[in-house]
Design a protein around this nucleic acid. Structure first.
Lengths: 255, 255
DNA sequence: GAGAACTGTTCGTAACACACAAACAGTTTA
DNA sequence: TAAACTGTTTGTGTGTTACGAACAGTTCTC
């Protein structure tokens, strides 16, 4: 059942996009597997793949279909279009070297956080996040840092759409609690994540403003709770993310 | 006229892919502009964009539609799926520092070269090539280095499909000349590009073999003809690209 | 400030494209 | 050797889709 929320949406296009997503998730697949995966007939999937092949969006090695390098080109285009990618990369490389923890930059799209860049210091934790990965906003420091500067109705819309699912015991799951936390974050200027998404992981994040004082993303530092304590967690690292956020803001304005 | 070369291809999908390509080329556009650009009615384009929006493949800021960050995720997936990206990046960074010229890595897909990575040394030339960019194979050193190790019928197919268009006075435009050049390259082990694509630009490239001795890509060094002369052009740099190609081959086998 | 020339969106319709199911040709398994 | 898989092809009817025109807003222009 290809659920079409919007009116006047095109079924055939939806099927193709589902195939593309499926190929992405599985790193390539065969016709029957895709057909079962998206719940369509083999014949249908075959026609869609023939079209994608014709437009060189997929490649076919033997019987396996894989996403083509055109998506590398499209991804590169999106990256460059953002305009801040290079600035972010430079600054985060510095920050990672300085604090020797995992540092990340994310922006918001369609109500979720999207990681744009990550850099692990020497002893940094390894998380499942990768560039392009999407995540709920309410349970991570990056997300809360951005939400804190959104108008309330915008936050309400996002909650309506994506909910407030719990990941750990500490995840914020009520609207009231989220809004009061966001108030604190707005006043303080930075956000914490105290094991709200992953047990044993603490993070700090600060928002990055664009030209019109709109939030365009956020910088975070993540580490194991054992290392994220005392002054380091509550003062030193917050100061570092704020400083990095400022560096990105300034450099973004001159590029 | 949405020309459909393959039989049983889906028109609606073709239109959407053309819209995606158009949005990529223009860094975002409005409905009317897209409609004119791809030769379809406004209503049609509107429905396709509504679908792409529904699946979060594009974003809408005001009246402008732009490719979404999902393409960053898809591009990253393709990159990781290749398996050699990180190895290539490390080695090319070294090579660029060593020779202080533009170094590049490309692979072949659908009969054309696709750039995967580039790194400019200090005084390196700036070319229009970017990651994901596609180029004809016959007129660049990277392309010839790969073609030299393809079976003849495969090369014929590629020529049939893409032709041998001339870019400069030096571009190879006849099949016979190309095949005899490829013979030389195969024996010698590396390929030159003596202003065959861009006036004033000389390059050297060596092929990179994968697990089954199949060519999986090539490494090149490019520079202004004024600096690419004598022993440096004919011995020193060829040795460097061959060495880098070997390093990539070895590291690729252990990852 | 009125109208013209733009937008993007919605809607009805008729042509036709598409998704299905079933048949087909190869391969691998049992 | 047959059975159980592949991927591909084909015919067919229904429902989709692309179009064009009408609609509602904006932004010009004079």
């Amino acid at each position: 059942m290809g659920e079409t929320t919007e009116p006047r949406t095109i079924q055939a296009v939806g099927i193709t996009l589902e195939i593309i997503d499926y190929l992405h998730e599985t790193d390539g697949a065969r016709v029957t597997e895709i057909a079962e995966g998206i719940g369509r007939s083999k014949g249908t999937v075959h026609c869609h793949l023939a079209t994608l092949l014709d437009y060189e969006h997929v490649i076919k090695s033997g019987e396996r279909y894989t996403l083509g390098l055109r998506y590398l080109e499209l991804g590169e285009g999106v990256k460059q279009h953002l305009g801040i990618y290079d600035v972010v990369a430079d600054e985060l490389d510095d920050l990672a070297g300085e604090c020797e923890e995992l540092v990340q930059f994310a922006t918001e799209e369609h109500g979720r956080a999207v990681y744009l860049y990550k850099k692990g210091g020497e002893r940094a934790v390894q998380t499942a996040s990768t560039v392009g990965k999407r995540e709920h906003l309410h349970c991570i420091s990056l997300g809360k840092a951005m939400l804190a500067h959104y108008p309330r109705e915008r936050v309400e819309e996002i909650i309506d759409r994506h909910g407030l699912p719990a990941y750990t015991e500490e995840t914020i799951t009520s609207r009231d609690e989220l809004f009061s936390t966001l108030d604190t974050i707005r006043e303080r200027g930075y956000a914490f994540d105290d094991e709200e998404k992953i047990d044993g992981l603490r993070c700090v994040a600060a928002p990055v403003n664009g030209a019109n004082d709109e939030v365009i993303g956020a910088v975070s530092i993540s580490g194991p709770s054992s290392r994220m304590t005392g002054d380091r967690y509550y003062e030193e690292l917050p100061n570092k993310v704020i400083r990095s956020a400022n560096v990105i803001e300034i450099n973004a304005k001159f590029s």
